[in-house]
Amino acid sequence: MRAIGLSSYYVLVKEIASELRTRYALNALLMFVVTTLSVIVFSLGSEHVPYEIYCGTLWVIIFFSAMSGLSRTFVTEEERGTTLLLQLITSSNSVLLGKLFYNVILNFAITLITAIAYLILFNDFVVRTYSIFWLTLLLGSVGLASASTILAAIVAKANSKGTLFPVLAFPVLVPILLTAIKATILSVEGGMFNEAFPDFQVLISFTIVIIAVSFLLFDFVWKD
């Protein structure tokens, strides 16, 4: 158990180090968020739209930024040809755990940046219950990242990686997206914290189930 913890920590360190070397994923994702935000700002202009639209578009941005960024962890291994090395030096569970943590950190950072930009940019988007809002962002992005990690491992072995990932991920991620949008709407409406409790239950149970299945299946996907 301790060995897995240590080796997955090193996988995480390796991911962060190779990311900081080029900063490709981080920069690309930031630019993606800025671009989509400005598209939304331009298209809305000075119109007043219902707050549900803001909650929906917030999660649209988070979803598509996850789709463009999170598959890279496994795709780059295939592109650089380093898959075999990782297979040799460490167990598949620690690879999955390390990459899972990396994706969670990356996705949560992007989610936070998007949410803060949202709160600053849109005057109509007023969150009344901040506890629901932040907890939804945390649980939603953890769920998105954990489901995307195992799907990224599948996509990395297929031929057309770029287009395939969102196609595969969308149906799996719909429960998270619908629940997260619902909880975000509740936070804007100013609902009580315990009103959002069923939504959090769905998000947490979904994430646990997905991570458990990831550990069961990853060995088959990772080793040729």
Binding site: A147, I150, L151, I154, L168, P171, V172, V174, P175, F206, V209, I210, V213, S214, L217, F220, V221
Partner: peptide, 10 residues
Amino acid sequence: SAYSIIAGIT
């Protein structure tokens, strides 16, 4: 089959 299991549990 891995994908159908992941999708199946949702």
